[in-house]
C-alpha cells in the first residue's frame, strides 16, 4: 500500500460573518495517496475551493490537522511553510485572474524560480523556462506575450507551467478546466494526466463537473455544505453510490441516448441551506428524499460500507447493507 502524502484530520474552517460563523469546512478528514488523484466534487459554495486553499494554508484553518509526509503543517512558521510550499502548488480556476497582467509569459513562469532562488544563473533560468514551456505545450514565440493576448487554454498552460516549475510533489487543481471551452478542457486534462505520469505528481482535483472527475480521479470525495458525505474509489462511487446526495448528483449526469430523451431528470428538491450557523444533524436532511426523524440527531461520521468506501448517512448504509 502506498503512503498517504496528505492526511487531513477534522479540518475546520469557519469564516466570521455578520450573522455568525460560515461553516466552509466542517470536520473533514481524508487522505491522499502518493501518485493518485483525489477528485473533490460538490455544488457551488460547498467548500471545495476552501479545502484546496486551506491545504496550502493560503487560508488558515480554524481547527484540525493537515499532515504532509506525516508532519503537521498547520503550526509551521513562515520559513518552514515556505519549504513545504515548494512541494505543494496550486492551479487556479480562472487562468486570467491568476496571472499578473503586467508580466510576460517568460517572467510569469520564471517568477517562482526567482523568488525561491532555485536558479540564480540567468542563462540557466532562461533554459529552464524554455523547457517548462515546451513541457506544457507552449510555443517559444509566445514567450514575450502578455496573458491578455492569449486564449484561455494557453493561459492555463502558463498556470500549469508555473505550478510545476519548482518540481512539486502535490498540486491542488482548483477547477482548472471549468473556465475553458469543452475542446480545450480535454487538452488541459490530458496535459495534467501526462504530467502526473511523467513527474509522478499527486493531485487534489476540485471540480463540479462529474464527467471530468470520473476521467481523471483515482478516488472521489463528494462534499455537501462543508462536509464530506461520501468517499470511494472512482469506479465504485459511480457504480454503487450510497449517500442520497451522491445518488442525486450522479442522476444529473446527462446520458447521450435517445431513449432518455423523454425521461425527466430526477433533481434534488429545494435549495442548499445556508452554511451560516447550520443546525446540528445531517446537513442534507431538508432536501433528502429518505429523510426521517433520526437525521436531526447525529453528526455525520463516515462509515466504511466496503473497503475504501465511506458514507456519512447511517440510514442509507443500513439500506445498502440489507440489499447486499
Amino acid at each position: 500500500m502506498k503512503q498517504p502524502i496528505i492526511e487531513i484530520e477534522h479540518l475546520k474552517k469557519y469564516f466570521p460573518v455578520k450573522e455568525g460563523k460560515l461553516h466552509a469546512l466542517d470536520d473533514i478528514s481524508l487522505s491522499i495517496f502518493e501518485g493518485q488523484t483525489l477528485g473533490v466534487v460538490g455544488e457551488s459554495g460547498c467548500g471545495k475551493s476552501t479545502l484546496g486553499r486551506t491545504l496550502l494554508r493560503l487560508v488558515e484553518p480554524t481547527d484540525g490537522i493537515i499532515r504532509y509526509d506525516g508532519r503537521d503543517i498547520t503550526k509551521l512558521n513562515r520559513k518552514e511553510l515556505a519549504d513545504v510550499r515548494r512541494d505543494m502548488q496550486i492551479i487556479f480556476q480562472d487562468p486570467y485572474a491568476s496571472l499578473n497582467p503586467r508580466m510576460t509569459v517568460k517572467e510569469l513562469i520564471a517568477e517562482p524560480l526567482i523568488v525561491n532562488k532555485i536558479i540564480s544563473n540567468k542563462k540557466e533560468l532562461m533554459k529552464e523556462v524554455d523547457r517548462l514551456m515546451a513541457l506544457v505545450g507552449l510555443s517559444q514565440r509566445l514567450s514575450m506575450a502578455y496573458p491578455h493576448e492569449l486564449d484561455g487554454g494557453r493561459r492555463q498552460r502558463i498556470g500549469i507551467a508555473r505550478a510545476i516549475a519548482m518540481k512539486p510533489r502535490f498540486i491542488v487543481c482548483d477547477e482548472p478546466v471549468s473556465a475553458l471551452d469543452v475542446s480545450i478542457q480535454a487538452q488541459i486534462l490530458n496535459l495534467l494526466m501526462d504530467l502526473q505520469a511523467e513527474l509522478s505528481l499527486t493531485y487534489l482535483f476540485i471540480t463540479h463537473d462529474l464527467s471530468v472527475v470520473r476521467h481523471i480521479s483515482t478516488n472521489i470525495a463528494v462534499m455537501y455544505l462543508g462536509q464530506c458525505v461520501e468517499m470511494a474509489p472512482s469506479k465504485v462511487l459511480f457504480k454503487n453510490p450510497v449517500h442520497p446526495y451522491t445518488k442525486a448528483l450522479l442522476s444529473a449526469i446527462p446520458i447521450p441516448s435517445s431513449s432518455m430523451r423523454h425521461k425527466a431528470i430526477e433533481t434534488v428538491k429545494g435549495e442548499v441551506v445556508s452554511p451560516i450557523n447550520p443546525l446540528p444533524g445531517c446537513r442534507f436532511a431538508q432536501r433528502c428524499p429518505g429523510c426521517g426523524e433520526q437525521c436531526a440527531h447525529y453528526e455525520s461520521e463516515l462509515i466504511e460500507v466496503e473497503p475504501k468506501h465511506f458514507v456519512a448517512c447511517p440510514s442509507a448504509v443500513k439500506a445498502y447493507m440489507a440489499q447486499k
Partner: peptide
Amino acid sequence: QDYIEAAQSYNTSDFRIILKYILPN
C-alpha cells in the same frame, strides 16, 4: 486578485508582492 494569492502560494515576499505585483498594476 487571484494573482496575489498565486504569488503567495510560491512564497513571494510581501515586499516583492507590493513592488512587482500591486504597484505596477
